[in-house]
Amino acid sequence: MSKPILTIVVPCYNEEEVLPETVFQLSEILDSLITDQLVALGSTVLFVDDGSKDATWSLIERFHLSNPFITGLKLAKNAGHQSALLAGLLKAKAYSDCVVSIDADLQDDTSVIREFLVKFHEGYDIVYGIRQDRSADTFFKRATAQGFYKLMTSLGVKIQYNHADFRLMSKRTLDNLEKFQEVNLFLRGLVPLLGFPSTQVYYDRKERFAGESKYPLRKMLAFAFDGITSFSVTPIRLVTVMGFLLFALSVVAAIYAIVGKLLGENVTGWTSLILSVWFIGGVQLLAIGLIGEYIGKIYKEVKQRPLFVIEKELTEQAQGQATVTSQASQPASARR
């Protein structure tokens, strides 16, 4: 296999504190990979600024002028991690043989990228970065994360256990990923659906180098719920099953009440009646909310609005100068 052109895609949101170190480490990795002839000259790092409010984009522009490895995309507004990542992947695939995605916080071990390339040369189209363990996490975070992966598996979703978005993908896998019409993005579930030869590389996750996590508990729960409802209708089927069970329970209660009346027994139970009303009312609200969630996803899909809008693009020229262009992304139907 000839030496591939590699692009490392890094979505960023308010990462000015960690960005200089991220640039340094990823530049060193690319330089060593080129020296060892694992990748070709022309391999780059593509930073995607997801509507940052700090100096993230200014730093990307500065590093682009001084570092031949650094390129960048600036989204017009915050589109979310998954959309920003997809923007970078689709841009990089046009000129790359393989693409590695990694977060800017340096918690994923950058040295593992070398192992990704070794696996790519062995013929694998997708290489997943898998955490060795979660011993460094708090009990709550470890329990909820493991519960999420187990729940997704039980719902029939094919997902890599303890894998986030640290992975290598070949050009042909990205070409096929672009065909998916998803607006409700959950790339961890989409990528395994492609079905190309894949393997895993295990690593130890580090502490965040600088700055604050962009995924507090609220966002993590929302992300998990999006993943579940985007890939499985099992939750809504469970509501149907619950409805049948409640109907059967109400029939039994009705028979009990009628028999008691015929036998002349007093049917007591204001407390049980009120509890039943509240319980059934709560189940109904839960069911309506769940149905509304699915309808909302359908609503987003049929509008086919663009997932992101690219405001600026930094590309590498032969002279090493920056070219800044402005463009808007096409609608999802045209783009894919």
Rank of each mutant, 00 (worst) to 15 (best):
L73M: 07
A92V: 02
K171L: 12
L185E: 01
D133K: 11
E115S: 14
D175N: 12
A94Q: 14
L177G: 00
R172C: 04
R114T: 07
Q181S: 11
I126N: 01
L106T: 00
K74V: 04
K150A: 10
F148T: 03
I126A: 05
F120S: 02
F166L: 11
L151D: 00
I113E: 05
T110G: 05
H163A: 10
G88M: 07
K77F: 12
V183A: 09
Q132V: 13
E182H: 13
E122R: 13
R134A: 08
D165L: 15
R134K: 13
Q146N: 13
E178C: 11
E178R: 14
V100Q: 08
D175A: 09
S101Q: 05
Y124R: 07
K93Q: 13
S135N: 08
A92H: 10
L117G: 02
Y149A: 00
F120K: 05
Q181I: 06
F120E: 01
S96W: 10
L155H: 09
Y128S: 00
V157R: 02
L177S: 00
S135L: 12
D165R: 14
V127C: 10
I102T: 06
A79C: 14
N184E: 10
A84T: 03
S101D: 01
Q181M: 11
F120G: 00
S135E: 09
K150E: 07
A94V: 13
H81A: 01
L75I: 04
S154F: 15
L89Y: 07
F120N: 04
S154W: 15
D137C: 03
F148G: 00
V127G: 04
T153D: 09
T173V: 15
L90A: 03
A79M: 08
L117H: 02
N162D: 11
V183T: 13
A104E: 03
R114L: 08
S111A: 11
T110R: 11
D109N: 14
Y149Q: 02
F116C: 03
I102W: 09
A143Y: 15
V112C: 11
